[in-house]
Structures are given as C-alpha cells and as structure tokens.
C-alpha cells in the first residue's frame, strides 16, 4: 500500500492533481452545505456547463483556459442569482436555460475550430493531466480565501441559509452573502472542472453535504463532516483511479456514492433502533 502511494507521488503531475483536488473538494464541500440547504444545488451544475463553454472559447482563441473561464463563470453566477431573484424565470428554469445554452455554444465553437476530439472528452469528463503549476498556486489562494471567508462569516452564512427573511430583518445583507457564495462557487468550479470534468464537478458540491446530513444533527457538524468526507473521497478516488486506471473524476464520484450509501444505511439503522427503543 505504502509502496503504491510512494510510487504514485513520484509523478509530479499526480502530486499537483492531488493538491489542487483536495483543496477544491474542501472548498466545494463547505460551499455545498449552504447551496444544498438553500435548494441551489443545481447552480454548480449550471456553472460547470458555462465553464465548458468558456473552455471551448479559450481553446478557439488560444488563450489560457483559466483567464477566460474565471470571468465568464463568475459573470454567469451573478446573472443566475439576478435572474432567480427577479422571479420572472424561476431558479431551476434559469439554470437549465443557462447550462444548455452554454453547452450548445461550446459544442458549436469546438466543432468549428478543433473539431470533436479527445479535448472535448477531457473537458466533459476531466483529465488528471490538466493541472499545471499555476493551477496549484491558484487553488491554494482560492482555498485560503474560501476558508477565511467561511470562518469569518460562518454564523451569518448559517443565518442566511436557515432563514433569509429573518436574517434580512435583523440587518444582515442576505443578498450580498448569496452573491459571495455564488462567486466562490464559480471560482471553485472553474478550478476543479478540468480535472473532474464539466459533467461531474457538481458532485463535489452536492455529495459531501448530503452525506454529512444523513448523520449529523447540527450545522457545524454537517459542515465539518462534509469537509472531511469530501477530502477523503477525493483522495481515495485518485488512488483508485491510479490503481485501476479509471478516469479520475468518475472514480471520485464513485467513492462519494459509496460513502453516501453507507451513511444512508447507518442513518436508517439508527432510526430503526430508536423506534424500537
């Protein structure tokens, strides 16, 4: 086992991928708890599709992928919240609208420039080779920002997530916090997308939060549990994908599914036992 790990980490691209992946999973899990509870889970999915479109644009104009996609995805996050708030088009419909449009634009751009090749497959399902040195620096910076903001605003995020109208009434600018969470989500998704894949990255947002909610009874414990399970699942997924030569993104999701099922089982068992007692 240790020999395998040492062998794995002798590849510098794998070290980079694990560092970026762990930090991205951590951020996604923290943001995910709030998003899932606010019924905004699909935001992650919508933004990752926009990310796909922006990667296509970046390839077409031969620009650095992050330099193009970060601003585009952040703007999309901003638009999503604005559209949902204006209530002319409901949140879920707005997300479906945005994500399919972005996907369509992306596919058309790719077919007009490079053609449908393995690049497209990598964008959609992720590639462990995608992380370079600047991604590592960026993800460390992002993780630092997300963790700091999350700790500083933890109580306000809890209040806004639990009850937006009460939070507003007590003078908490709920709209600003929603925006902050959406922006950080956009950054997390853009960073993690090329490794996890545009179609799979939102699993990092949804699974850890839901897994934590099976067993934990307080917001704090759900958050901590989500962060730990997210990082652990990512690591196990990467090791699994190395051992069995499976795609990284999908392997990480499989580990997440397994843990979710286990937690569900324990939760059902606990409920039954309590009912019997």
């Amino acid at each position: 086992m240790f020999a395998t790990l040492i062998e794995m980490f002798s590849y510098s691209f794998l070290v980079r991928a694990v560092v970026v992946g762990l930090l991205v999973s951590l951020c996604a899990a923290l943001l995910g708890v709030s998003l899932v509870l606010k019924r905004y889970s699909m935001i992650g999915d919508g933004l990752s599709h926009v990310g796909f479109g922006s990667l296509a644009i970046a390839t077409a104009i031969h620009a650095a992928p992050l330099a193009v996609s970060i601003p585009i995805v952040v703007v999309a996050a901003f638009l999503l919240l604005r559209i949902s708030a204006s209530s002319k088009i409901k949140g879920d419909a707005a997300i479906a609208l945005l994500s399919t449009s972005a996907l369509a634009i992306g596919v058309v751009i790719i077919s007009m420039t490079t053609g449908m090749n393995t690049d497209v497959c990598n964008y959609l399902f992720g590639s462990i080779l995608a992380m370079n040195r600047s991604d590592v620096y960026l993800s460390v910076a992002l993780a630092a920002v997300v963790l700091t903001l999350f700790v500083l605003f933890y109580h306000k995020i809890l209040a806004v997530t639990f009850d937006e109208s009460f939070a507003r009434a007590t003078g908490v600018p709920a709209g600003a916090y929603n925006m902050l969470i959406a922006m950080l989500t956009a950054l997390t998704i853009t960073l993690g997308m090329r490794m996890m894949g545009a179609l799979l990255i939102s699993s990092l947002i949804v699974f850890p939060a839901l897994t934590g909610m099976r067993l934990c009874k307080s917001f704090k414990s759900v958050t901590i549990c989500a962060a730990i399970t997210s990082a652990a699942c990512f690591f196990l997924g990467v090791v699994g994908s190395y051992l069995y030569a499976t795609p990284t993104g999908a392997s990480v999701v499989l580990v997440n599914i397994a843990l979710f099922v286990i937690f569900c089982g324990i939760s059902v068992y606990q409920t039954k036992r309590r009912a019997m007692a």
Binding site: H155, L158, F166, S218, F219
Partner: peptide, 11 residues
C-alpha cells in the same frame, strides 16, 4: 434543516 436548537436561537 440540520441545525441544533442552540444554533438557531443564537442566530
């Protein structure tokens, strides 16, 4: 919502 009563009241 998974929050303890204390967390809700404190908010």
């Amino acid at each position: 919502f998974p929050a303890s009563v204390r967390e809700v009241v404190l908010s």
